[in-house]
Structures are given as C-alpha cells and as structure tokens.
Design a protein around this nucleic acid. Structure first.
Length: 258
DNA sequence: ATGGCTTGCACCGCAAGA
C-alpha cells in the first residue's frame, strides 16, 4: 500500500493536479490538507470517476482535510473520526479512517504565526490535544500512520538556513519539543528511516524565487508506528508537482508499506 | 528591510499562510 500526504492550498485550484498526481504516482491512500472549501463543494464525483473514494471535513475559506482511498481497499465507515475528540475547535484540521486495518490520520497542524502570539498558543494547545488523543489511538491501533502538514521542521537539517530561522515559527524549541513528544508515543519519522540526500524539503515560499533557490523547509511528514515502520520500504518527497503551472507551495510526501 | 506570492472573499483591500 502506497500512502501519501499533500497540502494542496485550495483543492478547487489544485483539483487537476491531484487527479494527475494520483494517476502518475500510483498512490493508494492520499491525505490532503488545506482544502479551503465547504463539504458541498468537495469534488467527490470527479475523484470517484478516477477510482477514489473520498472522506473529508471541510469549511469555507480555511483549513479542511481529506483522505482519498483507491477503490477496492476496505474502509469501514464507522471508523471515520472528524476532528480531535474532546477538543472543541471550529477549525477543521483532522480526519481519521481505518483502511485495510491501518489507522490513517490526515492532519493539518496550525501554522502558529509566530512565538508569543495567540495563534502560537493555539498551536501548542492543539498539539497537546493531538498528543493526548494519539495516546489512545496508538493502543487501539498498533498499525497507525499520522500524515500531514505538521508546520514543524523537526531538526536544523530540515531547514535551508537554520541560522536565519533560529527560534522562529516552525522551528522554535516549543514546537520541536511537541514533535519529540509525538515521537515519544512510539512513532517514527518515515523519511528518516532511509538514507536521504541533503537539503530535501517539502515547502518553499511562493516569494523570492524560493523554489528555484531550494530555500525550503521540511514540514510535511509521515509518522509511523513500529508495526508500520517495520514494513515501510521507502519514503520520499516528490518535487515535480511544485514545478507545475500554478502549483501548491507544498510537495507531496509518500511512503511505500511492504 | 518583516516585504517579496497565492488564495478566498467580495468586489477592494485585507486576512492568512509558513
């Protein structure tokens, strides 16, 4: 099973990119973030036409997450969870589904704006709530994958210019500590389970020709429980869609399970 | 130098992203 995550920055604008990438990559399960559309505008029929079922929770203008599943894979509708249980939040950032016995979670972590702001405090509260919920999820589902836009670059090697970024949003000690706490639940960063080239990133600013300069950060991740990490044979970031016309500022991250 | 694009909303310039 090939699983992937992609922040599309508007599914309305990127609908054809998603369809093209699904076809070229052979992905079985694709987690999407930043749909930026309400549920009634989700392109369910268009994705069904190319052989994918959609599970999603959206809202107007902001946020919104989905899981696209190749037809033929077993999904029990009763396993679908939207949002973090017990965490009151009008922002739609989480959807989970059990697919072929694998717990798949698609998550759009808050951006946080900057340390010290109210949005940053919300990010930390949200990270706490995610951690607490995952504690239970991990015991219920030994085979668990947390995919999404984490808005956290875990280490300096995940940042093109660590000096310039030091202490800033996405790399601050508080955010990195939260990432380490997730790892502490028994999750492994799929990307780091393999030999990787240096300076591999998943997001580049639209401005300042950041992509051409490879001035990026690695903030989109696939975390796997031990049972899944044991059967994971590769994890990579596909930069190609970032070169397409009118691209998302994020590139898809994908992993092959057995 | 805190901008530089891109998107959505709404109809103009602003919020938000990271």
């Amino acid at each position: 099973m090939k699983i992937a995550t992609w922040n599309v920055n508007s599914l309305k604008v990127r609908q054809q990119h998603v369809i093209d990438w699904l076809a070229s990559s052979g992905t079985d399960v694709l987690c999407l973030q930043e749909l930026k559309l309400p549920d009634e505008k989700f392109p369910r029929a268009e994705l069904e036409a190319i052989g994918y079922r959609s599970f999603y929770v959206g809202q107007k203008t902001y946020n919104g997450v989905a899981i696209l599943v190749r037809e033929g894979l077993s999904v029990d509708e009763s396993t679908i969870v939207r949002n973090i249980p017990g965490f009151e939040d009008p922002q739609q950032r989480v959807i989970a589904a059990t697919i072929e016995g694998v717990r798949i979670i698609s998550a759009y972590f808050p951006n946080g704006q900057a340390p010290g702001t109210e949005k940053f405090a919300y990010k930390l509260r949200w990270l706490d709530a995610l951690h607490d919920w995952l504690t239970t999820e991990m015991t219920r589902h030994p085979k668990l994958a947390l995919l999404g836009d984490y808005n956290i670059a875990p280490e300096d090697r995940d940042v093109h210019d660590p000096k310039a970024w030091e202490g800033q949003n996405l790399v601050s000690p508080e955010e990195r500590a939260a990432f380490v706490r997730l790892i502490g639940l028994g999750l492994l960063d799929a990307f780091r389970q393999f030999e990787q080239q240096e300076k591999i990133y998943s997001w580049w600013d639209y401005r300042m020709m950041a992509f051409r300069r490879n001035a990026g950060v690695r903030i989109d991740h696939i975390l796997l429980s031990k049972a899944l990490a044991d059967i994971c044979t590769s994890c990579d970031i596909d930069k190609v869609p970032r070169k397409w016309e009118q691209p998302s500022d994020h590139a898809p991250v994908f992993a092959q399970l057995s």
